[in-house]
Design a protein around this nucleic acid. Structure first.
Length: 551
RNA sequence: GACUUCGUAGCUCAGUUGGAUAGAGCGACUGCCUCCUAAGCAGUAGGUCGAGAGUUCGACUCUCUCCGGGGUCACCA
């Protein structure tokens, strides 16, 4: 927030004057306790050693310096072992309202991304069946992460990698073919390993309706046609489910085109040139163990087919070739053992740690009335994402997923998420937004108007600690966004929104707005709450959750 | 076994470059709608931050050891 920036620059001036560097551990942060003012710094304590002076002594000098070199400061106090607590004036804080009014949806945006070209890849589930709840968590996280990074100044592209070339897809074709033959009474041996979900049979029926003669096709031809049809059908379903979940992918990248387009060979060549490949036992190996992996990995199997890893390397190679500087992969936590070898591959491409990050999404334990429901695409027993979204709504599901750290497992109880109570914080936040909307409607009905952008006089009624608490919280929005972006953790947004909403509900209950008694107070408070609801809407947008005007 | 991740209130979880008296929601208990949305508010109770040692002005945070839960260890994807 602005308060941090101005204190920081004052401190830098002080250090420069003394000919000192900024100590690595020195921070400027929001004071946790209002008694400690608005902004606190520990700088004096860290200067004690180099200056050979008592921390509180230095703090006193520092306090005077801050007072003289920072705009909008009301008071600076030395506290505890040597903290400097800075309090800003009410006039300073009121500017936050004006800033929100001027910037609107862009309020709180940051430029820390510096336009860096970033690719966020997420979901990327094999098109072998409908998305289940677990995919939903990854979808919500990836989508929200992309929104956050964009607001933080990154140039973000989102992508879904379609695994349409490997063994799983052959099994898919075979599964449909098997069902299809069964439907017309031409049974064949049950395949060893196949998808048993009812959607497989549905697809087979559909194909037969369109072309009854299909059953006469040769085994090979039949499987191929089943594969092709099923893949497209399922992929369309996936796309629809994601749309309904408000999840967007700009690109859909096919593994098959990667293989057919010779990009795999190109990537192999790059690895070979870097000296990392070798032949052994009739297979092509990649010496990932020289780059931090446990052991070497196979790229091309002895039967001539490619491993999943091989095309994935090619895919990431291609991402860099398309000019992306930062690759973020959102994966299910079961892929976590896969990370070191992918890192190795990235390094072999001449890229480093800075260019590649993986966000691991832990399991979702779906519960219905407290009873666990198992999810397995193969066995065909699962709760689909579409069902869940239909049941609880995209807002509640997304908020739930995005409220927890991605790397810890989550219990998702359908009944609980359906409930419109505090089990379900999404309504708490949305209610805060709707309440303000209702208030603004009421104001309009009563002929109370406030300007689109307030001037200082219009905000003069903001004098209470409650006012300042809301202003300070809004001012922290940008810091929250930056933290979420730099740590790739989406859950900060929902926690921030809970806190801001809490302040708003409390304010609303304690302080009258339209009935405050005088026009300045009414106008000021109305402008304040309008700004708060704007910030809530911005935050909800980061999560892809709607900000309703009515509830 | 190796690697990885987590262990914070009865429950679900925040607490990320080490900061002041460890937080929130739910649940429990006590109050608050003749008054702008009670899907709300105010308050009470609830803790050995898994255990131990170390690093230092200061540790929930960093290091090591141990205990306990999850996950992964394919020429599968």
């Amino acid at each position: 927030m602005q308060a941090f920036d101005s204190v920081r620059s004052a401190l830098s001036g002080f250090l420069q004057e003394k000919g000192l560097e900024w100590p690595a551990k020195a921070v400027v942060e929001a004071a946790k306790d209002p008694k400690h003012g608005d902004v606190a710094t520990n700088l004096a304590m860290l200067l004690a050693k180099p200056l050979h002076r008592a921390p509180r002594d230095i703090a006193a000098e520092l306090a005077a310096w801050i007072r003289d070199h920072t705009d909008g400061v009301e008071n600076v106090e030395v506290a505890g072992p040597g903290f400097c607590n800075v309090t800003f004036s009410q006039v300073f804080w009121r500017r936050v309202v004006q800033q929100v009014e001027k910037e609107g949806a862009a309020f709180g945006s940051s430029t820390i991304g510096g336009g860096r070209k970033t690719l966020v890849e997420y979901v990327s589930a094999n098109p072998t069946g409908p998305l289940h709840v677990g995919h939903g968590r990854g979808a919500a996280a990836g989508d929200s992460l992309a929104r956050i990074l964009r607001r933080a100044g990154y140039d973000v592209t989102t992508e879904y990698y379609i695994n349409d070339a490997g063994r799983q897809m052959r099994i898919l074709g075979m599964s449909v073919w098997y069902r299809l033959r069964n439907l017309v009474g031409r049974t064949m041996a049950e395949p060893e390993d196949y998808y048993r979900g009812s959607y497989i049979t549905d697809i087979a029926k559909e194909m037969l309706e369109k072309d009854p003669s299909l059953a006469d096709a040769s085994d090979e031809d039949g499987k191929e046609r089943c594969y092709e049809y099923a893949k497209n059908e399922i992929l369309e379903g996936i796309k629809k489910d994601l749309r309904d979940f408000r999840v967007e992918h700009q690109n859909w990248f096919s593994e098959k085109t990667l293989v057919d387009g010779g990009l795999v060979d190109k990537a192999f060549q790059a690895l070979k040139d870097a000296g990392y490949t070798y032949e052994k036992d009739g297979a092509l190996w990649f010496a990932t163990s020289r780059l931090g992996d446990d052991k070497d990995r196979v790229l091309r199997k002895s039967d001539g087919s490619l491993t999943y890893f091989a095309s994935d390397i090619a895919y990431h190679h291609n991402k860099f070739e398309r000019g992306f500087d930062w690759l973020i992969d959102v994966w299910g936590a079961d892929h976590h053992g896969y990370v070191p070898r992918m890192r190795a591959a990235i390094e072999a491409m001449g890229k480093g740690k800075k260019n590649f990050d993986v966000v691991l999404i832990q399991l979702v334990n779906l519960l219905i009335n407290g009873q666990p429901v198992s999810m397995s695409t193969r066995a065909g027993t699962f709760e689909t994402l579409a069902d869940v979204v239909r049941e609880v709504g995209a807002d509640a599901a997304r908020f739930m997923f995005l409220s927890r750290k991605t790397d810890s497992p989550v219990d998702f109880d359908l009944e609980a998420v359906k409930q419109r109570t505090m089990e379900n914080p999404v309504y708490y936040v949305q209610y805060a937004h709707a309440r303000v909307a209702a208030l603004l409607r009421r104001a309009a009905e009563e002929g109370v108007t406030i300007p689109d952008v307030s001037d200082d006089a219009a905000l003069a009624g903001l004098t209470l600690p409650d006012d300042m608490a809301l202003l300070r919280k809004m001012a922290l929005y940008r810091d929250m966004l930056e933290q979420a972006a730099t740590t790739l953790s989406v859950h900060h947004v929902s926690h921030y929104l809970m806190e801001l909403s809490q302040l708003l509900h409390s304010y609303y209950t304690k302080n009258q707005i339209l009935k405050a008694g005088d026009p300045v107070t009414t106008g000021s408070r109305l402008a304040l709450l309008r700004a708060v609801s704007r910030v809530i809407a911005n935050g909800l947008d980061l999560m892809g959750v709607s900000a309703p005007d009515h509830m």
